[in-house]
């Protein structure tokens, strides 16, 4: 009798239970896999067969700078996000629920608010005559407005803002799964709070930090909207360059080649991340 209901529903000739996935497979196959593969083929066939697009990509200082800048921005954003997210996740994991739920509510509100809305707010807040510069000057901390937009600072602030929830929420789970007894034991054995943090709490939360950090890094690598609006022309990122190459320059071959580079890097990092999360899950089941 078991699985009878399912077998009957599956289509003859297909492996048991795979039939109901067919619509999804067709949709993703036809409108996702086919276009992406066609795009990648285009990188070696447009305008003529050969690797000239990749040669142009890696041979030009401009494009190499875009690659380096993309990695730089993603690294800075990831590092800042981890540093800011960890203490917050730590508190959320142990705070009284009444207080914690307010913070959770704020995190969800910011996460669900339209992406362009949030970026627009930062554009206004960070501009030369914006609130932040005025407040800092009013307090006498600075005398000249700081350049906070169309540069690395602007992109970092805007991106960290967007990535924080993606780091905080999984980290809370990791930290909650740590047995407080381990830290009590460390204290009983004479460890100072700093030692307990460095040698117990931090190593135990490292899998969560690594998995979350890798996710933030991967998302940052391919981000388009925020760098395009808050970044400057001198530190363009890969996603914006791809869009521009295709949309404004109509150079599909070069754009496809750059897209392929982005795809390979992203997917490789994603595979590592899956390993990490998988390993953590296996460990959590013990």
């Amino acid at each position: 009798m078991q699985e009878s209901s399912f077998r009957r529903g599956s289509i003859a000739g297909l492996p048991a239970g795979s039939g109901s996935a067919l619509p999804a497979i067709i949709l993703v196959g036809l409108f996702f896999i086919v276009p992406v593969v066609a795009l990648l083929l285009r990188s070696v066939t447009d305008p003529e067969p050969g690797l000239q697009n990749y040669a142009a990509l890696f041979g030009s200082d401009t494009y190499v700078r875009v690659f380096l800048n993309t990695f730089l921005v993603a690294s800075v954003v990831t590092a800042v996000t981890i540093l800011v997210a960890f203490p917050v996740a730590w508190m959320l994991a142990i705070m009284p629920p009444a207080m914690g739920s307010i913070v959770f509510g704020i995190i969800i509100l910011s996460m669900w608010t339209n992406l362009l809305t949030r970026t627009y707010a930062w554009m206004v807040l960070l501009q030369r005559t914006g609130v932040i510069n005025r407040a800092l000057m009013g307090l006498g901390i600075i005398h000249e407005p700081l350049p906070l937009i169309n540069n690395l600072a602007g992109v970092t602030i805007g991106m960290v803002y967007i990535m924080l929830p993606f780091m905080i929420l999984p980290l809370v789970g990791t930290l909650r799964a740590i047995d407080p007894m381990t830290l009590r034991a460390a204290a009983l054995c004479g460890a100072s709070p700093f030692d307990a943090f460095r040698r117990v709490l931090l190593p135990l939360s490292l899998p969560g930090i690594a998995a979350g950090g890798l996710m933030v890094f991967v998302m940052s690598l391919g981000y388009f909207v925020t760098p395009a609006l808050l970044g400057g022309t001198s530190n363009m990122m890969l996603a914006e360059m791809i869009a521009q190459t295709v949309q404004s320059l109509l150079n599909w071959g070069l754009g496809s080649a750059a897209a392929f580079v982005l795809l390979v890097v992203t997917m490789a990092l994603y595979a590592i991340q899956l390993r990490l999360v998988g390993a953590r899950r296996a460990g959590g089941g013990l």
């Binding site: 492996p15 239970g17 109901s20 996935a21 993703v28 992406v36 795009l39 897209a259 795809l263 992203t266």
Partner: peptide, 27 residues
């Protein structure tokens, strides 16, 4: 389902979430 490649299928169907949107957009 009980078939080989079930995890692979799951990975495939979740890929659109991971692939940078700009790559999918131009494709």
């Amino acid at each position: 389902g009980e078939f080989r490649g079930r995890q692979l299928l799951r990975g495939l169907l979740l890929t659109p979430m991971v692939l940078p949107v700009v790559v999918f957009a131009i494709a």
